[in-house]
């Protein structure tokens, strides 16, 4: 299965499911990373992590480890 951390800057995907647990998972959902949402990877930070996403009309930064828990399908 494809995960969000594997996308390169400029690529987009549609979220299938959000893994992880507890505070982290809830936070990802609260910030709008819910299933069927379209997400674009905008940028990777200079040290290679975290990454910058674009979704629901705003920019969000998450770490790669956490992005690896989000399954997507490419669009």
């Amino acid at each position: 299965m494809m995960t969000l951390d594997k996308l390169s800057p400029g690529d987009s995907g549609k979220i299938c499911s959000v893994g992880g647990e507890g505070a982290l998972r809830r936070r990802l959902l609260d910030m709008g990373l819910t299933p069927k949402t379209r997400v674009e990877v905008r940028k990777v930070a200079p040290m290679g992590d975290p990454i910058e996403l674009y979704l629901r009309g705003y920019n969000l930064s998450i770490r790669k480890d956490d992005a690896a828990k989000i399954e997507i399908e490419e669009v």
Partner: peptide
Amino acid sequence: GNPVPFVMELP
């Protein structure tokens, strides 16, 4: 325990 997750808006 788990640190507060780094999920941050870039306004």
